[in-house]
Amino acid sequence: MITSQRMEDAALALMHKAAIDIPEDYLDALRAMTEAEAAKDEAGLSAFVLEAMLENYQAAEQDRRPMCADTGVPRYFVKAGNEARLQGGFVELERCLRAATARATQEIPLRPNRVHPLSRHDNGDNVGINAPEIDYSFEPDADWLEITTVHKGGLFGSDYRMLFPGDGIDGIKRFLLDVLIAFGKRGLACQPAIVGIGLGGSKDTCMVLGKQAACLRVVGERNPDPEIAALELELKDLGNSIGMGAMGFVGSSMVVDCQIEVGYCHTGGMPMSVHCFCLSSRRATARIQADGQIDYRHDPRWFTPYMRRDTVTWPGTTAASRRTG
């Protein structure tokens, strides 16, 4: 049984880690990108900006202060082992996540960013109606609980479009260029970004897949489908060929990595979403074991083989739940 206390402890620690410590995978990639920009004569300003960001991550870590004052919209992704047992159940887990959000806002401190869309009322603790969002997924043959928090800005750098099968790869490239050019100017997207692309699904699923691809995979990780993996690399290069760097200055540092996730969609359509996870790509994950031990890491490991399954059954599912094809 995973206790309520452990769930709240983990969530609170995650809020601190995400806000303050840049994930290693993003940091390593950004260091390489900074060196590449610095080696080019025309990308001096872009290189200057990236060097300042590297200094900023260090300052955040040394001072234990947030790397960015824009808290974004802090949220959680929960992966529950199929055998996990939670004290107080999922209702208690949700209370823990809301409590950790409010406590972290005061402790760290984070900017109270969440307001009512019409009255603009601010509770002052990043908690409100449908805030923080909590997304769920499940894992067979496991009794642990995994919590990931993501702090991502929300105003610029994302878009959705219904493409059609006839648009093909051309349509995907064109829409990606449109989004990166539109939001890359003046650095509105806070690039270089981890660009997440959702392909397929229903409209809302398409947005969710793209967001999760940007936020819940690590830099350098490829989609297991070789065709999609190749497209990821091709689109990354395309984004970096625009000629734009950090803050929209001349350079070639737009895309740190491109991550694509797919879902089966309507036979007549090919919906696509694009999301930019920014220079403050804030995410942190904890696994709480059944005995209460907590392990922290930067890699959410959200897209498991089980998540990406395309079969009716899954090996190990019980006879009672198995359907015949």
Binding site: V49, N56, A69, S280
Partner: peptide
């Protein structure tokens, strides 16, 4: 004057 990044929240905080 534009801030840099964006954003250098910790450096500006200092």
């Amino acid at each position: 004057l534009t801030t840099v990044g964006y954003g250098t929240g910790a450096l500006l905080g200092r």
